[in-house]
Design a protein around this nucleic acid. Structure first.
Lengths: 268, 268
DNA sequence: AAATCACGTTCGTTATTACCGAATAAACCG
DNA sequence: CGGTTTATTCGGTAATAACGAACGTGATTT
């Protein structure tokens, strides 16, 4: 479905363009089509509110419909729905940004976020596959898998470095996962972003199979070793509560296949 | 652009279908096209993560990409970005769900929401045009307009009743707006939904032109008259703070045209 | 357990539709 | 005010998306 494909790719481009916005020529060039073609695509997306036009010198941005639908997605996913009050509590208790992710091919996909009171903003996108080896949620998930499966996932994803502390060696990762199991929660100590730490713990279904992870994010400098341990216990506790509350409604579980999941855009 | 149009309409249908999901036959029927056509559309949307497929008996739901994009929209709108910490504070202070809306043709369009601690869930969708006459944010906005403009908007939108307390008479609305001006904030007393009250106050640009409104939502039974007045003052205060903080960055204002904005789906 | 039924999926043909490129109009900049 | 860039319109053409029938597949019923 060529034209639909192109239209949806335009939405992607608009997302990447960010606050700069997308121009007609830019859109045409990005798709490799004639200007008039891009024009028609843009107008159709506009009519449905998938894009928003700002004048003068028409620039195109992500539209309001996407906000509306995005909001609905979260409401329709049982895990997001159930975890929301827990995340709010967790953030209230720890004063940290907390999130919940479900697992997709070993990678965490974040579904819900509750921002902490801090003024610092974390770039914590929703709906993206995150690196399993460089995030607390990812490592919490991997820690529930056996060695073979971890190796397979690592081979598929590649242990790409995000910071100078990112674990890029499989053996080192396996050792870290061993510690994680012993501890009961995973620690990301500036392995995903400089100056940022995360703590994550997995939640499971009634058969003890990993469904995803809960995690909190904060400023590394503000976290002493003892505080990290204490926070870890708390996160562990909330992940367990989520496991239990999920137990009731196992009927609708997070989908085994989440569809085509892009990498985060605009990462720095 | 027929095929794109149809594809986007399918996303709409999937949103309306909610947790029930969308079936192939349902999709084909909704669009009035052959099954194979709907099939191809669905697959294309699936490939881009705009829809999500759940098996067996394939059902289609809103996809992860929509969550991702929806999240990005909020990040790219200056008003949403600036108001977020204010809303968090406002919710912390009042223990109520707080929201911010910008104005679009006299109607409030909600961009951001911070849920209160209460267990009660308000169906407060983002990215939709809400009724101007039956919401606190809407009345707060209308109160900044002159009589002619209010009449024009009412004629265009129609004063459709949502509850038995909804104001359906223009003269009564104008009187209410007069009170609102005197008070400094608008009150929606079960006019939008049974048992629910809202309080809203407008924020403006440096030329005192209305840009939108801040509002809080709570359970009617839990709000005494004196508490309402107190909350009103607080909301008024936060709207003013938003006006000031916005003053610095007037460069990028909420877009005059927000594009095609649908009515809320799934309202009850 | 077999057969029916309903629904999803595939395929080939046709004409509709979306693509292109040139021409026009509008906006922007010096 | 004129040059330049950028958006928008238009008509011809060919590729593309629509259709309908045929095939699988999974669930349900007797």
């Amino acid at each position: 479905m060529q034209s639909v494909d192109r239209a949806l790719r335009l939405v992607d481009r608009a997302a990447e363009a960010g606050p700069e916005g997308l121009t007609l020529n830019g859109a045409a060039e990005a798709l490799g089509v004639a200007k008039s073609t891009a024009f028609n695509l843009l107008k159709t997306l506009l009519a449905h509110g998938f894009l928003r036009e700002e004048r003068p010198g028409p620039r195109y941005f992500l539209g309001m419909s996407l906000m509306r639908f995005g909001d609905l997605v979260a409401q329709q996913l049982p895990v997001a729905e159930i975890s929301r009050p827990l995340l709010r509590e967790l953030t209230a208790v720890t004063s940290l940004t907390s999130r919940v992710a479900v697992v997709d091919d070993g990678c965490p996909v974040f579904l819900e976020r509750v921002d902490g009171p801090g003024t610092v903003r974390f770039h914590a996108p929703l709906g993206c596959r995150e690196a399993p080896h460089a995030s607390a949620a990812g490592k919490a998930i991997l820690a529930t898998y056996d060695e073979d499966r971890v190796r397979t996932i690592c081979k598929a994803e590649g242990l790409v470095p995000h910071t100078r502390l990112t674990i890029t060696d499989v053996e080192a990762l396996l050792a870290d996962l061993e510690e994680t199991r012993a501890r009961g929660f995973a620690i990301d100590d500036e392995e995903d972003a400089e100056g940022v730490f995360c703590i994550g713990a997995a939640f499971t279904d009634h058969q003890n199979r990993c469904l995803g992870a809960v995690s909190v994010t904060g400023i590394r400098a503000e976290a002493s070793a003892s505080r990290v341990l204490h926070i870890g216990q708390t996160v562990r506790e909330y992940a367990d509560r989520l496991t239990q509350e999920l137990g009731g409604r196992i009927a609708q579980l997070p989908p085994p296949s989440l569809g085509a999941l892009p990498r985060p855009v605009g990462r720095r």
